[in-house]
């Protein structure tokens, strides 16, 4: 496995995540898309860490912290989704149309 193959997988994950976040109507699916994008960044960091960098701790620490922050992000977003569900009884992003313009 070369650096390029890891980067390609990372780019594919990132694109899938971005498309998913932009096109899905269900807010949970949007959240999954964003998580994929963060995982793509983590994969990139680990690949660069393995092939380019001399000091291998930096990338690992970075990725560990990303994992922690991603969990916090999920908690916040799920709480917002709950609030939306209580108001709309639905988490379909298409139905959130009280604001427009």
């Amino acid at each position: 496995m070369t650096l390029e193959s890891y980067l390609l997988v990372g780019a594919a994950l990132f694109s899938l995540g971005l498309i998913g976040a932009l096109s899905h109507r269900n807010l949970i699916a949007v959240l999954i898309g964003i998580e994929l994008m963060m995982n793509a960044a983590s994969l990139n960091l680990m690949a660069f860490n393995r092939f380019v960098v001399t000091d291998p701790t930096t990338g690992q620490i970075f990725v560990l912290i990303i994992i922690g922050l991603a969990a916090a992000e999920v908690a916040i977003f799920l709480s917002i989704i709950l609030r939306i569900y209580r108001a709309y009884h639905d988490i379909d992003a298409e139905k959130l149309t009280k604001l427009s313009g």
Binding site: I34, Y88, L99
Partner: peptide, 17 residues
């Protein structure tokens, strides 16, 4: 809750992305 949730969903999704 409806206004807050909707506005927060838009802000948060774009911020996280």
């Amino acid at each position: 809750a409806d206004i807050g949730g909707e506005s927060a969903a838009k802000y948060t999704v774009q911020g996280m992305a």
